[in-house]
Amino acid sequence: MSNPADHLDIGALQDLKEIMENEFETLVNTFISDSQNKVDELDAVLQQQDCDALRKVAHSLKGSSSNVCAFRLSELARQLEMMGKEETLEGADQVLSALRVEFRAVSDILSTNL
């Protein structure tokens, strides 16, 4: 497993954990299942070349991943959002692959940190 600090803002995550208390587990589970759906959705819309849908789904993932302190995941989502917005899907597949890898890593770290 790679260094958690490469994927998540550990300090901020600690704060979040404190705020959420018992709810933290629910949050992580919600985030993971929610984001899994979004990643799958990104796959689908990219195949359909639906730029507007890509922008919206990526925007949503950008926001939620930033809230769980996953800055790298958020950044990758932002790149997809921009592509959707600018309607230039060149290289989007590569970004999505990287995002998928990043999501796996973030999920693993969050799950083990419960």
Binding site: L16, I19, M20, E23, T26, L27, T30, F31, D34, S35, S60, G63, S64, N67, V68
Partner: peptide, 10 residues
């Protein structure tokens, strides 16, 4: 967004 809502609500 379920997770965002959960955080804010908390």
């Amino acid at each position: 967004n379920d997770s965002d809502r959960l955080i804010l609500q908390t």
